[in-house]
């Protein structure tokens, strides 16, 4: 199995690679469109600021590749947010896969949200054998509101989407690579897509 982790210089991607290696698979890191396109599965990671991450994607023309991918794609954290229409962070146009905007938390809560929260109302194969109200680890200041593509919800001053899906595109706001056994199971489910 070939798993590509898109390497566009946005944050710590070693942890994601290590998490897959703990599951016995060996992803490769790449910023080359042809190479990424041949993978069976694609991971689109990202931490940091939205507009600078999008600028890095554009510099490598990966913003053109990603929407055309037909294999399962998993956006993680900022990766998920960049798959949305638009982010308030840095006034950033997204890749428009998920039909929602990304907004800043503004509901009397501390920002960023840092720590373990529960996921609920789970839909899709990504959450096979995951019970409602399991704990996952999150670090983020912006969130995707509930929409037609929501496949998991969490509460933080407001109920919002902690996972999204459209066709072959999946996005998770949490960090499965840092979410203990629950996160490992979610990554395993993705490998089995």
């Amino acid at each position: 199995m070939k798993i590509a982790i898109i390497n566009y210089g946005a944050g710590n991607i070693q942890s994601i690679r290590f998490a897959f290696e703990r599951l016995g698979v060996h992803p490769f890191l790449s910023d080359q469109a042809e190479e990424i396109a041949t993978a069976d599965l694609v991971i689109f990671p990202g931490v940091g600021e939205a507009s600078s991450a999008m600028a890095k994607l554009k510099a490598t023309k990966l913003d053109l590749l990603i929407p055309q991918l037909t294999q399962p794609v998993l956006g993680i954290c900022l990766g998920m947010q960049l798959l949305c229409n638009y982010s308030q962070e840095g006034n950033t146009e997204g890749l428009g896969i998920f039909d929602t905007d990304v907004l800043r938390f503004n509901h009397g809560v501390k920002v960023p949200q840092i720590g373990w929260n529960t996921i609920d109302q789970l839909k899709s194969d990504l959450f096979n054998n995951i019970a409602d109200k399991e704990y996952i680890y999150l670090v983020h200041s912006y969130y995707a509101p509930l929409c037609n593509e929501t496949i998991a919800i969490s509460d933080y001053g407001i109920t919002y989407s902690t996972a999204l899906r459209k066709d072959n595109f999946y996005g998770v706001q949490f960090h499965p690579e840092k979410s203990s056994a629950v996160g490992a199971k979610i990554l395993e489910n993705f490998i089995n897509m």
Partner: peptide, 11 residues
Amino acid sequence: VRRVAEKVNIP
């Protein structure tokens, strides 16, 4: 740090 990241699945 690298050895910890390889082995540990919490932040």
